[in-house]
Each structure stands twice: as C-alpha cells, then as structure tokens.
Deep mutational scan, measured.
Amino acid sequence: HNLTITQGKLFFHYNPKLCLSEIHKMEEVSGTKGRQERNDIALKTNGDQASCENELLKFSYIRTSFDKILLRWEPYWPPDFRDLLGFMLFYKEAPYQNVTEFDGQDACGSNSWTVVDIDPPLRSNDPKSQNHPGWLMRGLKPWTQYAIFVKTLVTFSDERRTYGAKSDIIYVQTDATNPSVPLDPISVSNSSSQIILKWKPPSDPNGNITHYLVFWERQAEDSELFELDYCLKGLKLPSRTWSPPFESEDSQKHNQSEYEDSAGECCSCPKTDSQILKELEESSFRKTFEDYLHNVVFVPRKTSSGTGAEDPRPSRKRRSLGDVGNVTVAVPTVAAFPNTSSTSVPTSPEEHRPFEKVVNKESLVISGLRHFTGYRIELQACNQDTPEERCSVAAYVSARTMPEAKADDIVGPVTHEIFENNVVHLMWQEPKEPNGLIVLYEVSYRRYGDEELHLCVSRKHFALERGCRLRGLSPGNYSVRIRATSLAGNGSWTEPTYFYVTDYLDVPSNIA
C-alpha cells in the first residue's frame, strides 16, 4: 500500500525493539523526510534493546553428524571492536523451508527459537588472519532439518551509529543413524509349514526405512522333555500350542467401542483428552525405555581390526524358502538304536541362519518350516543398504507352526516275539517326523474274553527296548493296539495285532 503524509511529521519514542533503520525507511515511504526535528525521533529510546544489523554474515563451514552440527561463519568486528559482546545463534526444527525470524513471537518477546549466546573469538592483530567464530550444536535429532541463523550482539553506541551483522536463515539436516526397533511384532501360524509375521514401523526411523531383515531359527525343545518319565503317576503330560491366527481386521481397528449394538453396526467412541494424553505418555515412556535398553543392555560386537582377528559373527547367506525346513542338525536320541526319531534339535552355532529381506511392506510369510516346531524370529529395521547396512537392534518374537495331521501315527506293522515265561516283546517304529517329539506310547492289549488293559511306555523305555515287553501273560489269544502321544496330543491307534500265548508248562520236552 502507498502511504503519503502531505502535512505533519513523524514522532517515535520509547520503541526499544524498533531499529532506527526501520524508522528511516518509514520517513522515505511516507514522504516526511526532512520535516522531523532532532528530538522527534529519539536516538536513545528507539532500538536500544534490539540488534540492528546492516551487514550480512556468511557461514564459512558446515559439518553434520547424526546428532551434531558444527558451524563456522566469517569474522565480524565493528569499528570499535570492544562493542562486540558476542553472537546469538538461533535454531529450531523446520520440516519445511518457510521459516521466518519472527515465527511464534508474542507480545512478551518470546519466540519459538532456541538461542545460544556465543563469546567472540580472540581478536588477531592481523586483519587478514582473524579467527572464524563458530559453535557445535549438540543433542539434535537424527535425520531432522533445522533452520539456523546467527547475528551479532553489540553494545549501545553513544554516537548512535547503527552497526551489526546478521546471516540469512539456512537449512541444515542432520545425518541418518540406526533406527529404533520395529514396533509390535506379531507372529502367527496359518499352516503346519508357515508363519505369518506382521509389525509396525519404528517410532524413530532416523532416516528413510529402506528394508527390513527377518531372521528365523528353529528352537530346540526343553531338555526336561527328553529326561522326564511322563508315565509316572502324578506327572502331567506336557503340551505345546501353536500360535493362533490373526483376529479379523475389524476387531483390530483402534479407537473402536468394545460393545456392539445388537441391531447392527455401531460407531466408534472418540477417545477423551485424558485417554489420548495417557497414550502419549505411555508411548514416550516406551521410547525412553527402549533407548535405555539399547544403550545399557546391548553391547556392540567388536569388529575385526587390522591384526587379522576374525569377526566372530557368522556370515549372512541367503537361502531359498524351500530350504528352511531342514535348518537344524538332527541327532538321534540314543545312538545305539537307529530307529528312534531325530527330534532332539541342538543347533550348531556355526550354522548360517536363513533370512529374508523385506522391502516396502511390514509383513512376511515364512514358508518351508517344520510342522509343530518353535521358531525364534528376529526382526531388524534398516535405513541404508549400501555401502553397508545400517540397521536397528533386533526385536524378537516366537511362534510355533501348526501340527501336521497323521504325523504322530505309527507307520509300519507292530511285530512281536514270544519268549519263555510268557513274555512277549512288542516292537514298532517311532514316527519319523512327529509333531514336536514323542513323549510316550500307549499300549492297549486284551486277552479274548477279558477286559482291555493299558500300559504306558516312556520315551526312554522305548529307546532301550525298541518297544516294550509284556510279562506274566496268561495263555490265550491276544490283540494289541499302540498309539503315540506327542507334544500336540495323541496320534491314531494302530491296526490290531494278534498273537497267541501258550502255557509254557505244557511245552513238550526233548528229553527222552
């Protein structure tokens, strides 16, 4: 807008934040220059609390790290170098490059900038070799853009010569660093050979998330399962459950009422301010606690030095998902009996873990797994792929695949051998790939016309006998059925096997 004052003059007093240069501009645009008398524009009460600059400061050096910015700028000295009290560095987070010096300023003089007072450097006698002032900004957020400017702080001049310097606002972004852990990993099994893994992005990506790394490792069953005799009275049979499938998407929606109208769909109840505040506090606490764990609990591995020492970490090797089922080394339970199943799973520490690289999504279907087997899954978020990966501390989750139908069934015939004193040795093959492992066998036998009897055969007993022995049988026709019990439950009964026990007292003698 054009402003013209045809008559009258300007009068400025007691404006401590208004620089004289701005008042002189007002004289020019209003056409009143030359009308004012000496005392109409006070030299001592206008701009006496402001830094009124008329020179431009330029930054000469900028260096960044993930949490620091090192700045240096060209030296500046007023005509009387004693008038320079120091520099004021202003900075704040700036997602967009549209910041002005006066953003967030209120009537009390406060604003949204963080201000650092910096002492002037030592003055050199040689004007050509003056030290460049600077400042190291610490405690910054990774991968965050900051708006920065600097200006001088000078003393009051009796001659009211307006001098000083100020830089333009520059924008500097800190470097990326390792992201925080992925949030809320959930693993479920939808079949006997697959596990579905879902997660949420890290709360602090500290860069642009480029991919996720998912490692999985087959877990050995508890050692007590191999040692305890679950045929003993009072000892509860062990059981394991597989990871249940995901709930429906509708039930997972946030901010939804727990109660549904019987007449149909209901609208979600909005969260109160107290609920939102509580969630923010919980989120802040979780982030602080995660940072504490990362800094205190997890110790970084030592990389190899120039002395030739090897990095103890196993090298990563990509495998196809079809090879995942046989990740671990199978060892027989008892070496003397080769027909026992290889369900003991000690994992070799030198073995390469299978892994998958996930790009542009937060889910993965891990296939080719062994049925009813526990897996430990390790999830890392990465925001750099080359020249070397920059990934987060791992988040861990466990899951067990679903049982395989008929995996616990005894394959092959049940054979028998009759000894003296009416002892019958029953023999059968253990299931080759049971659900988890076989903890015991149930032997059901009966003599024709009598009630059915049951015998429990422990895992250890089966390994020693290759089956079991029935003792003290009365003469007669017998039928026997056997079924295995694994961590997933009972298998199917075998087809009945028949044998006849004679009275050993009636056996004919070869003595003449």
Rank of each mutant, 00 (worst) to 15 (best):
V439H: 03
I418L: 08
V299A: 14
H294V: 04
H254S: 06
H211L: 09
W242R: 06
V297L: 09
Q252I: 09
T401P: 09
V443N: 01
G436P: 15
Q429R: 03
F215Q: 12
Y448G: 00
L379K: 00
E356L: 06
L225G: 03
S304A: 15
S203T: 09
S223G: 05
T307I: 07
C231H: 00
R481F: 08
D261N: 13
S479K: 07
E265K: 11
V297M: 09
P338L: 11
C391F: 03
L235T: 05
L455I: 07
G308M: 15
T494F: 03
R481L: 08
C391A: 01
S344N: 11
F372G: 04
N510R: 07
L369T: 11
K236C: 06
P338V: 08
Y259H: 06
D291Q: 02
Q219N: 10
D222M: 10
D222W: 14
T386E: 14
S341F: 08
S474R: 06
L470T: 04
V345W: 12
G472R: 07
G467E: 04
D222H: 15
I418G: 12
E290I: 02
V397S: 04
K278F: 08
F298W: 03
M402V: 11
A381K: 00
P245F: 07
F289A: 01
R301K: 06
E420P: 15
P349V: 09
G207R: 00
W216K: 14
E404D: 12
E290F: 02
C231E: 01
L369Y: 01
G476E: 01
Q380I: 14
K302M: 12
L237H: 08
K302E: 07
R376F: 10
E356K: 12
Q256R: 07
S304M: 13
S342N: 11
R481H: 05
G207M: 01
A407M: 06
S492T: 09
P338G: 10
R466H: 11
S363V: 10
M427A: 04
K287E: 02
D385L: 08
E282N: 04
N360D: 02
F215R: 07
K361S: 11
R286T: 03
R481G: 06
L213M: 09
S274K: 07
T386M: 14
Q384L: 04
N421Y: 08
K361T: 11
A381E: 00
Y478I: 02
Q429T: 10
A405H: 13
D323E: 12
P300F: 06
Y504A: 03
S305G: 02
D385W: 13
L379R: 00
F246K: 07
